[in-house]
Design a protein around this nucleic acid. Sequence first.
DNA 1: CATGAATGAGAGTTCATTCAT
DNA 2: AATGAATGAACTCTCATTCAT
Lengths: 206, 206, 206, 206
Amino acid sequence: MSTAKKDHIITTAIELFAEKGFEGSSIRDLATRADVNVAMVNYYFGSKDKLFEAIVEHKAAFMRGKLDEIAANPKLDELEKMNLVIENYVEKVLSQPSFHKILYQELLRAERQTMHDNIIRIFVKNTQTVREIIEQGIKKKIFRKVDPQLTVASMMGTINQVMLSKAMCAMLLEGNKSFSPYTDPAFKTRLIKHIKQVMHAHLLQK
Amino acid sequence: MSTAKKDHIITTAIELFAEKGFEGSSIRDLATRADVNVAMVNYYFGSKDKLFEAIVEHKAAFMRGKLDEIAANPKLDELEKMNLVIENYVEKVLSQPSFHKILYQELLRAERQTMHDNIIRIFVKNTQTVREIIEQGIKKKIFRKVDPQLTVASMMGTINQVMLSKAMCAMLLEGNKSFSPYTDPAFKTRLIKHIKQVMHAHLLQK
Amino acid sequence: MSTAKKDHIITTAIELFAEKGFEGSSIRDLATRADVNVAMVNYYFGSKDKLFEAIVEHKAAFMRGKLDEIAANPKLDELEKMNLVIENYVEKVLSQPSFHKILYQELLRAERQTMHDNIIRIFVKNTQTVREIIEQGIKKKIFRKVDPQLTVASMMGTINQVMLSKAMCAMLLEGNKSFSPYTDPAFKTRLIKHIKQVMHAHLLQK
Amino acid sequence: MSTAKKDHIITTAIELFAEKGFEGSSIRDLATRADVNVAMVNYYFGSKDKLFEAIVEHKAAFMRGKLDEIAANPKLDELEKMNLVIENYVEKVLSQPSFHKILYQELLRAERQTMHDNIIRIFVKNTQTVREIIEQGIKKKIFRKVDPQLTVASMMGTINQVMLSKAMCAMLLEGNKSFSPYTDPAFKTRLIKHIKQVMHAHLLQK
DNA sequence: CATGAATGAGAGTTCATTCAT
DNA sequence: AATGAATGAACTCTCATTCAT
């Protein structure tokens, strides 16, 4: 079936784009790496641009869903929701560092409006869900009167900061470039713990 | 003198690369925009890659200096230093959004080891200075026993998060894509205030 | 039976080639338009080139036959024969403008010797039949001593000239690009009348 | 200077396109034949399509001018004008058989609206000039009341008919494929004589 | 010191064709 | 008998770079 090969191309493309960037990667590179014919990418996806869109679409579902579920759960108070959001978000990002990189690379580029807008849509969606949790918490006086939007930026920004470059992250944490933080379970625990601690201190009434 | 022309090319290149990315920009585009001959870039800088290095070098000085000065000032306690660092960093980043974009684009790419390493060096340098302030504050019991590295990540990450995309930042803050946050003085104040608030809550003993 | 499908492909191909030219048409275009599988053309005809040959062969019979019949009819004198030839030729060409276009496109190309020769054979055959009528008329002193070959060229050339481009023909006749001369019965009458008039004036003794 | 090389490319392209058609010719073929770099065509002309436009423009001037001059000459009556038009047109077409082929190939294709329209414009211009001469002749009662538009078609069509294919023309005239009619001065005389004869018989009052 | 012309390599894409089913 | 998947070759075009002047 063709889905297997399409998925294989997508998986390989995510790695390649994460390494070399979208513009920096050639279809020939991709074909060689994925061990398929050069014409396959255009055959399956129509164009290099549409391959990118397919990647985003392929992975977007994975990024959605869980956050809304958490936000909608009536059994949880806002602090519990924030804790779950943090755990969930860190988990997701660390499990797909390459895809995360691609999204951010594209976000940093002003060109290609359509794709840019698609990606923004994904981010804005996630961001708003978290913002609403915070606003709800403020309304209920569980949280202090913080800046909701920028609080989301702090939460996500912390994670993104360590995802910028494996080498840099490794150096900052261990002073050792070859350390692999993204696959180290201790790092995940440490990151979650830190973000929770920052958010608690920031959000909770003294 | 040729320095003026070189600077002009560098300035134009920063804008162009921020818009279209390094790979997405052609030397012809750049030459047209800067109103110089196509051969000038190679003539002055040797190659497109070396132009990038020149950009980084050119601006790196600007990013350095002030932080060390703050850190070394014996008249300030660690909290005051952190406040100044935050103000200074926000100021710098917002005054050069294009250059900031380029650095982060390059950082997100694993390729081009030399350049990657150069950029990492700049970041690590800045990061370490801030980390040392925090560690000093902890030692002096002014600050709580936080995770110094990740605290720096939170501080810088918050700023970077809003710098990712003008359009996204505008949407998140105002729900309006055409709002220009980077040049809005109110936004700067708001951002500094927020980061200080987060850092204070996080760092200070209850 | 497969003949129906082959004919369907041929008919569709004639339209397509007339519009976009042989080289400008892709087998995929053709397959989509004819609503058959991409592999069908090669399956039925062996190759794109052989499809062209099949088209020519398929239609060649239609172009032959009638002229010989007219030429061989002992009950007609040469002037009557010329009149019938004119009527018959105009009729045929106007009824198959697309096929006529394809033949002339190919004729204008020096390449593809085999195909070129095939088409030339069809033309030369028709031409010679008409030339013989004229030569016979001259011999019988019904016609003046004209240049037989070039007289045929004038007759056929007049028709071909208006068949070159529907848009141009329409403009020349009506100053209106959207007029459809090839399907207008009045135009056929007008064309036949004109050619007869030219030929009569040219061929007949004063 | 660059004009020499541009002209060289144009000249080579005219030959190539006449042989293989526009779509059938590749830029690589052209570059090899003209002994220039593959990138030169795009460098000089922007694209393959624009090269075609450049060819048309380059030669269009050559096709214009003389006809208008003849038509406007007050010293000539309409019959003399027609004679000169015939001589002039045959002369021009025979001197540039390849370019003539290209124009007609393109005219036979329905696609590429812009180019089609450009070529139609050239033709319509020439055609109208001749038509006006005929209409003037009719008005002055020098000519019979013929169909002006189709009379032009007969004149031009006769020439075009022999220009369709060198091989076919040679066969029709001499029964010998290798005869080179376009460069044979006797053929030119013969063609002019024939067309004049046809036009005189057709146009003049008995 | 500066430039317009020129180049070879490689980009994305399309093509006619083949092959396993 | 018929097809969707797959392919390698070739296409136009753009690129960073070089070179003669």
